[in-house]
């Protein structure tokens, strides 16, 4: 077993470093989701507004983040924007901002879809009781929309966590980047280490994402009944 790749996993601090990389990935994803969902809910509401201009602006916003590949987005935030605007923040912060904006764009479409799929007669029965538009939104539309949009939101979260694997492109010490460093350091002595490291990385992503995926399925099934 001396030269088996699996020993690399537990050499020195390798395993702890990999977990540290996972933690970086998870907190960037979590922060991006928190800010992105808040901003996205607001944009989603604005996208149901009567103003054509507002709707058009946020439609373009959505399409921008949907069309531009995430790698390009990260480069834009890490290399181009700081140079042009003079912001000099660490890669992890820039990545969090880029991801949060991406999440807000995707989530705004989910919120808009959920809001318009609450039956019109629900609005009317609320209005007929004397509720104001705002009360109607807070007590009737939003809770129903939340229930409808929950599976799609969880799916978005799993996508964000997966996509943190791109963080290595802007030198953030995420799970993949740590793994890559360990592989390169041990490639001579343990050529099979690459298999074990990526095997573990696969497992770690799976452990984080799979419960979310199950949860989303469960909510979706409940919504159907």
């Amino acid at each position: 077993m001396e030269h088996s790749g699996i020993s690399v996993l537990f050499q020195g601090r390798n395993f702890v470093r990999l977990l540290g990389g996972l933690w970086t990935s998870v907190w960037i994803a979590a922060l991006a989701l928190v800010f992105g969902l808040l901003l996205g809910a607001l944009i989603g509401l604005l996208r149901t507004s009567k103003s054509k201009l507002l709707r058009a602006i946020f439609r373009i916003y959505l399409e921008f983040f949907r069309i531009v590949p995430t790698v390009v987005l990260l480069f834009l935030f890490y290399y181009i924007l700081p140079r042009q605007v003079g912001i000099n923040w660490p890669g992890s912060v820039m990545a969090t901002i880029a991801f949060a904006l991406w999440v807000s764009a995707e989530f705004s479409d989910i919120v808009r879809g959920a809001l318009i799929s609450v039956p019109k007669v629900q609005q009317e029965s609320g209005l007929a009781l004397g509720l104001s538009k705002w009360q109607l939104f807070i007590y009737v539309l939003l809770p129903q929309a939340f229930q409808l949009e929950l599976p799609a939101t969880i799916n978005l979260a799993t996508r964000v966590i997966k996509t943190t694997s791109l963080l290595m492109m802007i030198s953030v010490m995420d799970l993949i980047n740590v793994g890559q460093q360990i592989i390169e350091a041990n490639n001579q002595s343990h050529p099979t280490a690459v298999f074990w490291i990526y095997g573990l990385i696969f497992l770690l992503y799976f452990i984080v994402d799979y419960p979310l995926s199950l949860w989303s399925k469960k909510v979706a099934r409940r919504n159907q009944n």
């Binding site: 039956p119 007669v121 029965s125 209005l127 007929a128 009781l129 009737v140 809770p143 129903q144």
Partner: peptide, 21 residues
């Protein structure tokens, strides 16, 4: 001021649309 009037004029619809939440 419909919001005020609607408190005095109740309405019930065909589709018994209670709030499901």
């Amino acid at each position: 001021n419909w919001q005020q009037l609607r408190q005095k004029i109740g309405m019930v619809f065909q589709s018994y649309d209670l709030f499901p939440n």
